[in-house]
């Protein structure tokens, strides 16, 4: 697996947010989902930059929808996970789980 195919932490967060939101995943809702679940305040720009990167890697797809009045006449860009993205996020999760497995965490805590 090439270096470019590992997912960064924020990339994972964004992808999981997409999975939670399903068909309602666009800029504002994704940002809100991350704030709600991770308790982390992020800028909309950071979210888009990450989504663009994931799109270039082929992990997410996007499409434009009609503009609405409440958005000041601007179009909405919806996002969804691609099959490659689903595989990548699962692999990231497995990797972490494998790393944790069989670890006697309590003994480490005692040495602190």
């Amino acid at each position: 697996m090439g270096k470019g195919e590992y997912l960064g932490e924020f990339e994972q967060i964004v992808m999981i947010a997409l999975a939670h939101l399903g068909e309602n995943a666009y800029g504002m809702t994704i940002r809100g989902e991350i704030e709600k679940r991770a308790g982390r305040s992020v800028s909309i720009g950071a979210v888009y930059a990450t989504l663009d990167r994931l799109e270039r890697k082929g992990y997410v797809a996007s499409w434009l929808a009609d503009p609405t009045a409440e958005r000041g006449g601007k179009a909405k860009r919806y996002f969804s996970l691609e099959p490659a993205g689903i595989i990548a996020i699962q692999r990231a999760r497995e990797m972490l789980t494998n790393m944790w497995e069989g670890l006697d965490w309590d003994s480490h805590m005692r040495t602190l």
Partner: peptide, 17 residues
Amino acid sequence: LPRNIMRGDLVEEYTTL
């Protein structure tokens, strides 16, 4: 292009939430 879409999100969240 990214500006317009981003502004749409910001305006929506600003006005509605």
